[in-house]
């Protein structure tokens, strides 16, 4: 029973959505609208579960004085602190995002720089990964290496100074050979999605409901 009901919901929902695509009638539109109204509600409830999980795990850690338990405070304090701040000084309905609030200050001067820092790490990691990966070990690897160098130079103004052909060749690589390869992978992915969806709708694949098949 515990698994039959969810499987039935998936099957009925999946088939309904498939049929809905082909039926423009008002009834079909109403069903679809009903589904779209439900989604945000479910997401909102799931967020409560998520925050609950995070709070539970970190309060456990603090209580048990587990390894690195101090960091748990760094999670819990902002987790609850930011919403409280947003509502203590709500400059507007948007939850205090406007300039004078403390919330806005923390957002712009702590969260934005921290996140930008995380993303900018990519530049360092790409350099290190490129150094290790681009070796002319074989003919194919050499082609890859040359393509990478041309595209990299073509993307920046200095490539332009080295010669017009560089950015043009770079763009050509992006527009044609790159796209051809991507399309091939995307087609495979498309059919993978189709098959996986069918397996889920018809209950062949049940792992995602918990448990390893059968």
């Amino acid at each position: 029973m515990k698994r039959t009901v969810p499987l039935m919901i998936v099957m009925v929902g999946g088939i309904l959505m498939m049929l809905q695509y082909f039926i423009p009638h008002q009834i079909s539109q109403t069903v679809f609208a009903y589904y779209t109204d439900w989604t945000p509600i479910i997401v909102a409830f799931a967020l409560v579960l998520g925050v609950g999980s995070l709070t539970r795990i970190h309060s456990h850690k603090i209580r048990r004085k587990a390894k690195n338990w101090q960091y748990s405070y760094a999670v819990l304090i902002p987790l609850f602190g930011m919403p409280i701040l947003a509502h203590l000084w709500p400059e507007s309905i948007s939850g205090g995002m406007d300039s004078p609030s403390i919330f806005h200050f923390i957002f712009m001067h702590i969260q934005v720089p921290i996140q930008a820092t995380m993303f900018s790490l990519l530049a360092f990691y790409i350099a290190s990964a490129a150094f290790r990966a681009f070796r002319a070990k074989s003919a194919l690897a050499t082609v890859l290496l040359l393509a990478a160098v041309v595209v990299m130079l073509g993307q920046v103004p200095i490539g332009e100074l080295l010669g017009r052909w560089l950015p043009e060749t770079g763009l050509w690589i992006l527009r044609y050979p790159n796209l051809a390869a991507k399309r091939a992978i995307m087609l495979g992915v498309g059919f993978g999605i189709l098959a996986t969806s069918l397996k889920i709708i018809f209950g062949v694949e049940r792992n995602w409901l918990g448990g390893a098949g059968k």
Binding site: I126, A127, A130, F131, F134, A148, V149, M152, G159
Partner: peptide, 8 residues
């Protein structure tokens, strides 16, 4: 980009 190419 130049540095990465030099590294490669």
């Amino acid at each position: 980009h130049i540095l990465i190419i030099l590294l490669i």
